[in-house]
Design a protein around this nucleic acid. Structure first.
Lengths: 200, 200
DNA sequence: ACCATTCTAGAGCGATCGTTCAAGAAGGTG
DNA sequence: CACCTTCTTGAACGATCGCTCTAGAATGGT
């Protein structure tokens, strides 16, 4: 079923180009990353970028999707799926966030949290796009905590949505602190303190 | 000693113009706010803006200073100065942040936290400028918690810097959540949960 | 009255923005 | 081989960026 694609073959590695674009968008955000920055980092000319990715917004969409499939972008969902208890899942998310957000191997913090916070009027769709992903993560947390309460892991007095909002705020704050230079050690301390809010 | 200033008098209200600029920078951030946006909102022409404020960066500095003297920007420092206990100060900061960050009377969240998160290479000084203010706030928190431990309000096993980093992360996360549309009620719930981390 | 000073209005500066285009190069298909 | 398709290159598009300039208007000082 492999369709032999016709025409002149691409001369650059598409995945490597997306990775280079990811690093830039992650570091500086959507709007502060120009096409010139991107073509320089990807080692291609504007024509190639537009032929391969459409436009800047489509490239960004592709970057976010690749990011969310990568370890740095997927660890929270994996923890929610793998850990048997809600408390275990959230503890793991917080501890892994401490390691991932301050990992010097890539830009600090979370791309979904920080790549579109300062956006001009013309690019509101980009802001909405990332906000929807964050809302989705918040809902996933709240759903998991709701299950936990129904299963008796949480006392009936606990408020799953309030807990989810709290942990989401902590995670977003950890991302911000990482971008301000916080070390993994500091973030790990924050993670442990945050867990003290778990209802007993 | 009042120097009667010579020359044609300014035709616009300087404070009102700064307030209009503050609203824009607060809502969209430094880079996403253009001179054209500013002059339109302030009701003046570029020449007047540059005569009165110097350049975009100087105007932003002035906006940040005015913001930090305003209730929305000063409440944390006031709470630290007025409350007799560190715990009382931090509780008040968190609760007031819930009200201030989601106040519909002005843009959501904190300007110092969110106005320069996506910045291009040419404007790194702006990013550093706000980061220094955040570092200053973090130090003030850590200092207050250090005093509290020396005074016996905190157990000797408590780590003031780790606690300060934790509460700073929560506050920054609450700002982000507010910008994503969180209500005062949600943020107030987050504030109470965050306080559960206080060492007993 | 006259000058020095400071403001406003409006045009316009060079640079950069995201994007497109024309020409040619590199492959598969007949 | 010619031909279609797709990619690369380099120039260049109109729009917008931050900012400046010129001309004139409005004040105080002398």
């Amino acid at each position: 079923m492999s369709e032999a694609r016709r025409g002149r073959p691409r001369e650059f590695d598409r995945d490597a180009a997306v990775a280079a674009a990811t690093a830039l968008f992650w570091e500086r955000g959507y709007q502060a990353t120009s096409i010139g920055d991107l073509t320089a980092a990807m080692g291609i000319r504007p024509g190639s970028l537009y032929a391969a990715f459409g436009d800047k917004m489509s490239l960004f969409h592709e970057v976010v999707e690749a990011y969310q499939r990568s370890p740095a972008g997927a660890f929270a969902g994996i923890a929610l799926a793998e850990e048997p208890t809600a408390r275990g899942a959230i503890a793991r998310i917080l501890r892994e966030a401490a390691a991932v957000y301050a990992d010097p191997g890539h830009p600090a913090g979370c791309l979904v949290i920080s790549a579109a916070t300062n956006i001009a009027a013309q690019d509101v769709e980009i802001e909405k796009f990332l906000r929807e992903r964050r809302d989705q993560n918040l809902r996933a947390l709240a759903d998991r905590l709701g299950e936990a309460r129904r299963a008796g892991e949480l006392p009936s007095t606990a408020d799953p949505r309030a807990l989810a909002a709290y942990f989401a705020a902590v995670i977003q704050g950890m991302s911000q602190r990482a971008r301000d230079g916080a070390t993994t050690a500091e973030l790990a301390g924050t993670a442990e303190l945050a867990l003290a809010a778990w209802p007993s």
